[in-house]
Design a protein around this nucleic acid. Structure first.
Lengths: 277, 277
DNA sequence: AATGTTAATATCAAGTAGATAATAATAAGG
DNA sequence: CCTTATTATTATCTACTTGATATTAACATT
């Protein structure tokens, strides 16, 4: 039965691609950003919030639940291209920082059929979105609290609705790197997206300390206090200004512009040293 | 044409899973270990080498080229289960540390058809392999040299054969995390496996500094010099013993056994504090 | 008993990070 | 114009971490 081939061309000509079982793949994309909430008090600093973009499903399965933007990949695009396509459809933004997070493959993660999904995370400066968001999509502010060393509590809220869940940080065994997911059923989030959200936030939290990816969420010019707030809201802790400035000093470049009008000493505007323009 | 459903059950009953294009998925697994090369001189310390397991393909495509162990996933197993299955088939080992590396999805990465592959890395203590390896598989010592900040040179050798390639570390844009792969064609390694190998070594290099994964490659009892050599061969640089001992001190536990007979002060045997047994 | 070798510890110096104090520059209100 | 509240920015002190060298210990061989 096994035919012997003498060259790769010959083999490929005969190849029957239905020999192995097939499945569908999707990409899900966790779009993260920081917002500036204007406060009424001129003296009070605006409060930065960390937020992610969710869309409401208007079809089955998980009809009317929230989920990450995503979609099936096409046969002529890579996963990354697929994620970028979804990202652009959702935000109208191109050339966005995007990073592969993890590929989720639980056999029953989708009730329709076997679907493996690769999650990406994207970092954007929310203010660059010119047009309104699509009707069914919405920013949710994130608060992620490490309750114990092994337990996360996550709260997502968009002003009207609140979604919360607990995630167990414990590793399955010591033989793997995956989180165990302890939310038996979340009634507001679709699929395995809670764990995607936490994986992405964790990744950002780590990488913000040893890479420059945070600048993908910043406008071109910013004050060091603003940048510090972004760090604070992502790391979920207060930082001391002198130390923060010391650490960030070699990544940023002072411009000769300042931001005035705040009722206190004006702050110098900085820009990212590594920026292309 | 769009039928309206009133419940998820109803929707799923009607669902046509052929609606979206499908593809095959494989897992590839990068099995890494450190070897102890016995030296003839009783005084000379054995030299540790860092090595990975490759198998020679005996079918098309890439017949007679070396590649990572791997295989198609089944419809009733997760990617991780698939990787573990391949790992066990290759080494007869169970309960091995395994970690998802990256999912590769270039459209033409396999000449047969569209195949997306998720790469895993596994860390083993080579000495635990009781039986011989399969006939077509073989350990290759790795030397990975960072030639410039953006350029890697990798040399794999198994005593008879040498495989080398250059990999460009430059990121595609600043909008992604993927390495650009500069080996137009490698005539000894199949598929995109050169980049998988480098990704895995990089990951290990990083994680060895802030996690305890190195102990997955160690026997139960070891001397601190042996452990230091493992660090040195992975990080590809010499470390100072006093500083190394200081850093590693709280991760290991001294036993009351020693290793004698080397013509110098005997070394205490240690074990990993976090080990289960 | 002398020698060569690695194991293990002690110690010094340089650099990093956490914290507090001091000074600067504005807007608002009198 | 002067005072006040507020944040921006810099200076400085101390504790801790890290890189490096020196010292002592314990063996096997000759």
């Amino acid at each position: 039965m096994e035919k012997k081939y003498s060259s790769e061309e010959e083999f490929l000509k005969d190849y029957d691609s239905s020999m192995f079982e097939k499945l569908s793949m999707t990409t899900d994309i966790l779009i993260m950003s920081v917002s500036t909430e204007e406060s009424e008090n001129y003296r009070k600093l605006e409060e930065k919030k960390f937020s992610i973009l969710l869309v409401k499903r208007d079809d089955y399965p998980y009809k009317d639940k929230w989920c990450l933007p995503g979609g099936f990949i096409k046969m002529d695009e890579t996963l990354e291209e697929s994620a970028n396509r979804v990202l652009e459809a959702e935000t109208n933004l191109k050339n966005i920082y995007i990073e592969q997070l993890y590929t989720f493959s639980d056999v029953d993660r989708d009730p329709r059929m076997r679907i493996v999904s690769t999650a990406y995370m994207a970092l954007i400066d929310k203010n660059k979105i010119k047009d309104d968001l699509k009707e069914n999509s919405c920013w949710f502010n994130v608060s992620l609290v490490e309750e114990t060393e092994k337990k996360y509590k996550v709260v997502l809220e968009n002003g009207k609705e609140e979604i919360s869940f607990i995630l167990n940080k414990k590793l399955k065994e010591q033989t793997t790197d995956r989180y165990e997911f302890s939310v038996a059923k979340n009634d507001k989030l679709a699929f395995d997206h809670p764990i995607v959200i936490v994986s992405g936030i964790e990744r950002l939290k780590n990488k913000i300390e040893y890479t420059d990816i945070v600048f993908n969420m910043m406008p071109k010019y910013f004050t060091l206090s603003e940048l510090q707030q972004v760090y604070e809201v992502i790391l979920n802790k207060k930082l001391l200004a002198p130390d923060f400035r010391r650490i960030i000093a070699n990544k940023v470049e002072k411009t000769d512009q300042v931001r005035k009008g705040k009722g206190h000493r004006p702050s110098a505007l900085f820009k990212y040293k590594g920026s292309k323009d």
